[in-house]
Design a protein around this nucleic acid. Structure first.
Lengths: 325, 325
DNA sequence: ATAATGTATGAAACGCATTTCAATGCAATA
DNA sequence: TATTGCATTGAAATGCGTTTCATACATTAT
């Protein structure tokens, strides 16, 4: 294998010239260029990329922080980031946190240590001040509404999305509305909660804590929700469900239990993941892959152009009417 | 920020001592240790990890090569790898290839360049000789049966799994059996194909090309399969479906079209992803997360212990009887 | 008392590519 | 002919932590 100096020696040129050849810089005579490539072949040489990273002070890697890789919500974001990153010659380092604070901080530390040039935080549990403390070390994009805080962000307006959903349900005559959510903390969850309470207030309904289902992430959780509903004397007539996966679980298990949807229980969910189409679930489409792409772009602009235009970008949603409302 | 030399100067010690302190080596007087930490605080110092990587010749990063991050089959493997990697202090660099050869090769090049210490290839399109050419640069684990080739591998016995599925269908009285698969190339796909043809031969049925559906990966593809089935004068009575996602698409769309399952069409799929439980799909459980964990372990053993016991590991599957067969 | 260990610390070499600066050769413009 | 400018090339500095080797002193074993 060897290093650049051995190549230089073998090709009879200086290391600078080898570097120029390797990086396609101009001003190298064709014969020397050829000699260098031949030496590279002969020694089966490849750059040690860690030396490159050290010398350049950057890695062309960006960190992606998320709680669970195998949840479609997040894997779709990652897919978007990945596609865009590839085109720009960047790579992705994955930080699966399970919402553990120390793992999120570890990702931020990696930025400080120059392991990554930037970070995209798809979802977080640590307080945002923690994150702010790291912003001098490189661009950090949050996938949530940062509301005037001086942070980069690309986000889906979950408040608007939930409001849209609530209004749609209300229009359809529902007043007893519950909702299912992944967790109750977090900016996005708070936005949804706000929208929910506000919409209820507008129709003069008081919220029922038992109609709010936390920890709803996967299909299985939908089953849990239905089981719980079945024990209630008074049930909501409609549920806003923050994930198509959960909605799929609810719809299938409810039907299995003989519950009519949407007659007895209307379901309006979010994502517009293929599963919702298959099950004819009315859903509000979230541009997750796009959000990933835009988040990457924002990091990229920061890194390449030094500064950039937008610091925050909001993505809008739209409702896909199907058969569960 | 500064570097280790500045810390040394500020703390009044040598760089070696600083390094010792930073890495918790013994033989440093408590007072110097303290002085170093104070200097670290004062300068808000953090190691430049690229220098560490260069000096150590390793990165504690392993590359994960897969075609699509947002397919449950792969994201579940990644989840397994990630969990295990975290515990061992390793990170994951993602290579989403879309089955493009150059992207797979790029991942291998990263091993040669020492960007990653090892690679896990979840699925590939390039010829295995290509991969073999890189094995001197670090451990490479394939998630497929390498059949005696001198490569590391952790795999699910897809031949056995398909055979199991076929036998189950045959036992249930089916003779006209088709199958759906992600792609026709690839070791795993070939293993399934072999099992399929062999099982057919055992019951003296000749294969019908039109009953074999390629490019079946996502829920939407199930819809395509059903649409295609509906145009046939003679249809299979059962389908072996290589992914729960596709099976979900088939089951839901077929039922939507008024087709009775399993009476008119039996569906036996693979994965035992939650979606199959929700839809009561009979499926053969594949230990994907476990495969990811084991693949990482194998890399890890190689890196830490130098050598290791097993070079190849087979994971077995089991059938989960539900309502679609 | 002497040899053998163990503790503590620093200088210097090592891993390796990039980049700046200076210098030289040549051609084109004034 | 003198001058400006571009093409070429190499020496040396830079980025930064790890690790080996040598040194010096303090113990403990013989």
């Amino acid at each position: 294998m060897g290093n650049i100096r051995e190549i230089a020696k073998l090709a009879g040129v200086s290391v600078s010239t080898v570097s120029r050849v390797l990086n396609n810089h101009p001003y190298v005579k064709e014969e020397k260029r050829k000699a260098v490539w031949e030496a590279v072949e002969k020694l089966n040489y490849t750059k040690n990329i860690n030396a490159v990273h050290l010398a350049k002070g950057k890695t062309s890697i960006i960190g992606v922080v998320l709680p669970y890789v195998n949840h479609p919500y997040f894997s779709t974001i990652v897919e978007g980031i990945s596609m865009e990153a590839l085109q720009c010659g960047y790579h992705l380092l994955l930080f699966q946190t399970s919402y553990e604070a120390n793992k999120e901080i570890e990702a931020l530390e990696m930025l400080k240590m120059k392991q990554v040039d930037g970070i995209i935080i798809c979802s977080r549990t640590i307080h945002w001040e923690w994150i702010e403390a790291y912003k001098d070390y490189g661009p950090i994009v949050l996938c949530e509404n940062v509301k005037g805080k001086d942070m980069l962000s690309v986000y889906i307006n979950h408040y608007q999305a939930f409001k849209l959903g609530m209004n749609y349900l209300i229009e359809k005559g529902h007043r007893k509305i519950g909702y299912c959510i992944g967790r109750t903390t977090g900016t996005n969850s708070k936005a949804r909660e706000d929208a929910y309470y506000e919409a209820l207030k507008q129709i003069n309904e008081s919220p029922r804590p038992e109609w709010i289902f936390d920890h709803c992430l996967y299909i299985e959780d939908g089953k849990r929700v239905v089981t719980s509903l079945l024990t209630m004397k008074e049930r909501p007539t409609a549920l806003l469900v923050s994930s198509d996966q959960v909605a799929a679980g609810i719809v299938t298990f409810a039907q299995h239990k003989g519950m009519k949807i949407p007659e007895e229980l209307a379901i309006l969910s979010f994502d517009n993941h293929p599963i919702s189409e298959a099950l004819h679930i009315t859903t509000i489409e979230l541009p997750l892959s796009l959000m990933g792409k835009r988040a990457f772009r924002m990091i990229y602009n920061h890194l390449e152009s030094g500064e950039m235009t937008k610091k925050t970008e909001e993505l809008s949603v739209h409702l896909v009417e199907r058969l569960t409302v």
